[in-house]
Simulated assay, not measured.
Amino acid sequence: MPTRDRYRNLFRDGLWGNNQALVALLGLCPLLAVTTTATNGLGMGLATMAVLILSNATVSLIRNLVRPEVRLPVFVLVIASFVTIVELTMKAYFFELYHVLGLFIPLIVTNCLIIGRAEAFASKNHLDRAVLDGVAMGLGFLLVLTLLGGIRELAGQGTLFYQADLMFGELAKDFDLSLGPDFQGALIAILPPGAFLFLGFMIALKNLFDQRARRRRAARTSEVVPGGAVGAEKPQVLA
Rank of each mutant, 00 (worst) to 15 (best):
D5A: 11
D5S: 11
R6Y: 06
R12D: 05
R12Q: 09
D13P: 05
G14D: 01
W16L: 07
Q20A: 14
L22I: 11
L25M: 14
L26D: 11
T35V: 07
T36N: 12
T39F: 06
N40W: 05
N40P: 00
G43K: 02
G43M: 03
G43L: 00
G43H: 01
L46I: 15
T48S: 13
A50N: 04
L54S: 08
A57M: 08
T58R: 04
S60G: 04
R63G: 09
R63K: 05
N64D: 12
L65N: 05
V66L: 04
P68E: 03
L72V: 12
V74T: 03
V76Y: 09
L77G: 13
A80C: 10
S81Y: 10
S81D: 04
T84L: 15
T84N: 14
T89L: 15
M90A: 05
K91I: 10
K91H: 11
K91Y: 11
F95H: 13
E96P: 05
Y98P: 00
L107S: 03
I108M: 15
T110I: 15
N111H: 07
A120I: 05
H126I: 07
V131T: 01
L132Y: 04
G138M: 02
L143Q: 01
R152I: 00
E153G: 01
L154W: 00
G156V: 10
G158L: 02
T159N: 10
T159E: 12
M167H: 08
F168I: 08
E170D: 13
A172K: 04
L179M: 00
P192N: 10
P193I: 04
P193A: 13
G194C: 05
G194E: 10
G194N: 09
F196P: 00
L197F: 13
G200L: 06
M202V: 06
A204Y: 12
K206Q: 14
K206D: 09
F209T: 15
A213Q: 15
R215K: 12
R215W: 13
R217M: 11
A219S: 15
A219F: 13
R220L: 14
S222I: 14
E223L: 08
V224E: 14
V225H: 15
A232G: 15
P235S: 14
Q236C: 11
L238D: 15
